[in-house]
Simulated scan of single mutants.
Amino acid sequence: MTRPVTGGGGGQSLFARYPRAGRREGLRHQMLRVRGRSVAWVPPLLLLLGIAVVDGYTAENFRIITWIVLVPGIAAALCGAWGTAAFAVLSLLAYALLDRAWPDEFQAGLPDFILIALGGLLATAACVVRIRGERNLLRIRGIAETIRRTVLRPLPMHWGGLDHAAVYLPADTYARVGGDFYDIQPGPHGTRVLVGDVQGKGLGAVEMMAAVLGTFRECAYHEPDITTVAERLEVRIRSHRDHIAALGRSDFDRFATAVLLDFPQDAQDAVDVVNFGHDPPLIAGPHGVRTLPTAGGLPLGLGDLVRPDVPTLPPVRRFPFAADETLLLTTDGVTEARAPDGTFYPLAVEVTRALTADPRTARPRRLAALVRDGVLRHSRGHLEDDTTVLAVRRI
């Protein structure tokens, strides 16, 4: 299958540093585990001990024993339901023992005892609600991931005579499925590659993504002319939009940017490119990095906006592509990744710098890992959009 790059370039440490990027677990769960064991009980326990010590060593006009009501509240945000209940009971016991240690005239008394008991009950109830919400969120994220894996099929290694490596990083969008897609389809007329991004998110974007990929896999195998494949993709987008509009839905105006590649059998040192308004591909190799000048085409689904006398499809352009070069395709999650100061990720500059330091970086796996790590560092893990990287090279 397409290799989801996980090694090289410090990728694992970057994911640990930026757990929001491409992982289910929240930052809270990452921070409260040491060597695989939960230490969520430590903060509320330290707070309980701190309140007890301060209350015991201060004067009678500075009683803070009632602050112990904060302990089950902190536990509700960090621990499980049983742990929160245990801290609620422990807080009551600590309050009773510490308060009775003072003379009668300085004791807080029954009203504060009731306050702490009520606070413990509310904290336990809030913890139960929180855990249910987290479980529902994980379930929704699991469904979203299953949907993506169903639509984006796994690709065998060296599929279609190409060495390839792919990276997909979902943005932090509350488990809404994004519209990034890619596929490789070998056939009797050569190997075709498609990378793109459907406008918007959610199930509507997934529906259009599935329609585009299904058409691509069918016609990329059978059609000898890459222009016909491009035409079929445009027609499929429009027919899908007509179907959505007929259903009365409001999301029928979606479109998709995409790059369609053809590795023809009769030209082993070239690649044909059709660009539907997508970021232009890069070619990286021993002689440096070059951007393929393919911009200018309309996205898929917008061809009906032009005049009848104007071609609706972007032209097919052929570029030299040597055996020791890698073609890099990304979605706008890469080029639009922002640093805290607002600057965009300089993709071509970073790839050029890495190739100058080590020409072996041009290999697909290393190149995909380089872009992944660079985007995470540049954006500090705050991805504004789904990020997809696909690097391919002829075998």
Score class of each variant (00 low, 15 high):
P44Q: 04
R23C: 10
L32T: 13
G22W: 04
G56S: 08
E60R: 05
H29V: 15
E25D: 07
L49H: 07
D55I: 01
L48K: 00
L46P: 00
R28Y: 12
V39L: 12
A21G: 07
G22Y: 07
M31R: 15
L47F: 05
L46R: 01
R24I: 11
A16L: 15
P19D: 14
L32N: 08
P43I: 00
R23P: 05
V42M: 04
R28V: 15
R20F: 08
I51H: 01
R24D: 15
P43M: 01
A21Y: 01
G56V: 09
M31F: 12
R28L: 14
R20G: 09
Y57R: 09
V54G: 06
A21M: 07
S38N: 07
G56T: 11
A59L: 12
A16I: 15
Y57K: 06
L46V: 03
L46Q: 02
D55W: 01
G50A: 03
R20D: 10
S38T: 12
V34S: 09
G50N: 05
R23Y: 07
D55K: 01
A16Y: 15
L32W: 04
R24T: 10
V34M: 09
G56H: 05
Q30H: 11
L46G: 00
V54D: 06
R28G: 14
R20Q: 14
W41K: 04
L48G: 00
A21H: 02
W41S: 10
E25H: 06
V53S: 03
I51A: 00
D55Q: 03
Y57W: 09
L46E: 01
L46I: 01
A21C: 09
G50E: 03
R35M: 10
H29T: 15
T58N: 05
L27R: 14
A59P: 12
L47T: 02
I51L: 05
H29R: 15
R33C: 06
V42E: 04
W41F: 14
A52V: 04
L45W: 01
L48W: 00
V42S: 01
P43G: 03
L27S: 14
R23T: 12
Y57E: 09
V39D: 10
